[in-house]
Design a binder for these strands. Structure first.
Length: 740
DNA sequence: GCAAGGTC
């Protein structure tokens, strides 16, 4: 039997459909759908799900307290299955196979994924014969060509990928563990470190430092308001856009008289080029600018892809490959919502798409694969589908053409100006109307016109600090620096949120993030720089070229990590103190109005959280906090209470903007009172069976537990009563609420 | 409970 292994299920299905003389038979093997057909031999095609195994340390290293972080550097690295069903199917089919063809994606990870699968098969069938095929799109021509010319597996390339896995695990796990223990942050709140996440976090922290160091500089702007012939008012600005000297600006203000003369009018034309095809980064950038987070955009893109509405969403490529029939792809839209756009494009004799800078072999750019009806998708999905369709169309459209107008004015010898712009020909902007610049219309003016001045204004302004990174911009920057991949960058950003290193969008780092980045920059600078990835890429290339052995690269990397730990050991105390200080700062939410001490997030003896005063026990001012979720202190300050707003982060949920905790508490008390006022009629129940939800049977149970009157039920400890009766705590507390 | 990389 000939076994063909693809990287994912859908690829297996499509490859089978192309290779099979007749429709392939769908056969379930160990719970997996595979595709079988008869060629020269019986052939089975099965899909993996990317990596189906994972690297890890042996179980003995799992205990954070007992195993020193340093020991992870030279610990064994073992391979464990992550997709058991697929591994079982591989073993079953692998045993029967006489020949195996690896048909995973055409890139480094694809090579490694193929070798991982082959290794599983070799365990049950050591003598099996194997080869490898390369294709860059699943079209009949590419697949037929690939299978007509099978090649050998590139084990060096797979080794290169494997070295990355080991280095990521060893550095990430040992540093994460060391920092978490040093800061006393164990359990869910551990402090993570990684080759990609830490340099990304450092970018965000650096930007924040730049903002903090920024000193705003005051400047002034001068405008005059003119009336045109038709009576309309419009503004013009002094040619010195920013006056750094107030006196100078005031001098100009004094000069402005009653009239302005048009000294020149220059009309010209400007063109702007249609956009390039979407790759993942560009797609996330565009989605981000219409309000989607990177992770959400990718989640929705994934579902549009699995439903067949768009092509594969994880791609670096920005050039449509020859193998796609682009005209046919536009013809799909001759019906439906985008009919008029498709027809206009199809009327062209020649369709010439734009090309981006990146051209790769793995997958085509993202394009709409089939026609969707609005009713088939939810609102969020539709908007992103529409974005992909419109972008696809725009890449075939003409340039947009603007008419620009530059008018200069003379006011008592001072030059003023006004710029106008008008869209003459929409071109691609008709297809793709996102973030389009507005027309700036100026009245009809000619050189020598004299207009009356109706007003003048001098604005006080100051220079602004550089902006924080938005998610779209950060992903683009990560790509430029080689951090992460098209499939992981959005995940890395989500990770920074869930570790409470950042909050908000644009991203704002917490004090914890500052402390972690500072500690790493001082004692383990390698892991905070994108150069570590560049160096790793170089090493991987050398391994792939066969110039160097994987083992050599790993040994060198481990040696570097030992040096880092030697540095740690000399500075144990300092690292621990500075981390703890940073972590403490994230707990401060302001100054106590009653005593002037710090108000902090604290824990009671019973473990519940609250906001308490550092001046306790002399001052016992306090505010409640929600029971679960991480508390994040934002930089927004409540105008009324002078304390910082807070957010609550629960894994897998949207962050909850709680606002000022004191306002929130006051609001909560108010609604509580209102609710009481709403139902003052219901009198306190007399008998225990008057309490809603308590019948005779329950009453008997309660009596057996020593609770026979309403008063007793109100007083009893719900937890203890639950233990002795088996009734849930929640139910008991509800009864108690009903009584009160 | 630790990373980053695939894919769902």
């Amino acid at each position: 039997m000939h076994l063909i292994i693809a990287e994912k299920h859908i690829a297996a299905k499509r490859i089978a459909a192309i290779l099979a003389p007749k429709k392939p038979k769908q056969v379930r093997v160990s719970g997996m759908d595979t595709y079988e057909f008869k060629d020269e031999d019986r052939t089975v095609v099965m899909g993996l799900s990317g990596h189906i195994v994972q690297l890890d340390f042996p179980k003995a290293y799992n205990n954070w307290q007992k195993v020193e972080s340093k020991e992870l550097i030279d610990a064994d690295v073992i391979t464990t299955p992550t997709h058991v069903k697929i591994v079982n199917a591989l073993k079953k089919l692998g045993k029967e196979a006489t020949h195996v063809t690896i048909a995973t994606d055409y890139d480094r990870e694809g090579e490694l994924i193929g070798v991982e699968a082959l290794e599983i098969i070799k365990k049950v069938n050591p003598e099996v014969d194997f080869d490898r095929v390369f294709y860059s799109a699943i079209t009949k021509k590419e697949i037929d060509d690939a299978f007509a010319n099978p090649a050998a597996i590139d084990f060096n390339l797979a080794d290169a990928g494997h070295s990355r896995q080991v280095i990521d695990l060893v550095w990430g796990a040992s540093l994460t563990r060391y920092l978490s223990i040093s800061a006393g942050r164990l359990g869910k709140l551990f402090l993570s470190v990684g080759r990609v996440q830490s340099p990304t976090l450092a970018l965000i922290v650096d930007k924040e430092k730049e903002r903090q160091a920024f000193v705003p500089k005051p400047y002034w702007e001068i405008y005059a308001t003119l009336r045109d012939k038709s009576g309309e008012l419009f503004n013009i600005q002094h040619k010195t856009q920013k006056f750094w000297d107030r006196g100078e600006a005031e001098k100009v203000m004094d000069i402005i008289g009653d009239n302005a003369t048009v000294s020149s009018v220059v009309r010209s034309k400007k063109k702007d080029k249609p956009p390039t095809p979407f790759n993942t980064t560009e797609f996330i950038g565009a989605a981000s600018s219409i309000g989607y987070s990177a992770a959400n955009a990718m989640r929705i893109a994934e579902s549009l892809y699995t439903s067949g509405f768009i092509s594969y969403p994880r791609t670096d490529n920005t050039v449509y490959p020859e193998s796609i029939d682009l005209r046919a792809q536009i013809e799909v839209f001759k019906k439906g919502t985008f009919k008029e756009y498709a027809e206009k494009l199809l009327a062209k004799d020649k369709l010439v798409p734009t090309r981006g800078k990146k051209e790769t072999t793995d997958h085509p750019p993202i394009y709409p694969a089939s026609l969707a009806k609005k009713s088939e998708l939810n609102d969020q999905e539709w908007k992103l589908y529409e974005l992909v369709v419109r972008r696809f169309f725009a890449t075939f459209a003409e340039e947009a053409e603007w008419e620009t107008l530059k008018v200069r004015f003379d006011i008592e010898g001072e030059e003023f100006k006004a710029n106008g712009a008008r869209l003459l020909h929409a071109g691609w902007r008709w297809y793709y109307p996102y973030n389009a610049p507005q027309d700036r219309l100026l009245p009809a003016l000619e050189e020598g016109d004299v207009l009356s001045i109706k007003g003048k204004e001098m604005l006080d302004k100051e220079t602004q600090p550089p902006g924080r990174y938005g998610q779209g911009r950060l992903i683009k920057l990560m790509e430029e620096l080689g951090l992460g991949t098209k499939a992981t960058r959005h995940d890395i950003i989500s990770k920074l949120y869930s570790r409470a290193y950042v909050h908000g969008n644009p991203l704002q780092p917490t004090k914890t993030a500052f402390a972690v980045v500072e500690a790493l920059e001082k004692y383990a600078p390698t892991i905070t720089k994108h150069d570590m990835t560049s160096k790793l890429e170089e090493d991987m290339d050398s391994i792939a070229e066969g110039e160097i052995q994987e083992e050599n690269v790993l040994t060198e990397s481990r040696k570097m990590l030992h040096d880092v730990f030697a540095e740690f050991e000399e500075n144990t105390e300092k690292i621990s103190e500075s981390l703890r200080a940073g972590l403490r700062e994230d707990k401060v939410i302001g100054i106590c109005k009653e005593c002037g001490s710090k108000l902090m997030v604290r824990r009671s003896k019973r473990g519940s959280r609250f906001i308490g005063c550092d001046g306790y026990p002399d001052c016992n001012f306090s505010l409640p906090l929600p029971k679960s979720g991480q508390v994040i202190v934002t930089d927004k300050v409540c105008e009324e209470h002078g304390i910082n707003h807070i957010k609550i982060i629960n894994p897998g949920k949207r962050p909850w903007d709680l606002g000022c905790p004191q306002c929130n508490f006051i609001e909560w008390k108010k609604t509580q009172e209102e609710e009481k006022r709403k139902q003052p009629e219901s009198p306190k129940p007399e008998k225990i069976t008057d309490v809603p939800g308590i019948g005779k049977v329950t009453a008997k149970k309660l009596e057996d537990a020593g609770v026979s009157t309403v008063d007793e039920l109100e007083e009893v400890n719900a937890r203890e009563l639950s233990k002795s009766t088996g009734i849930s705590v929640g139910k008991i507390m509800k009864w108690q609420e009903a009584i009160a």
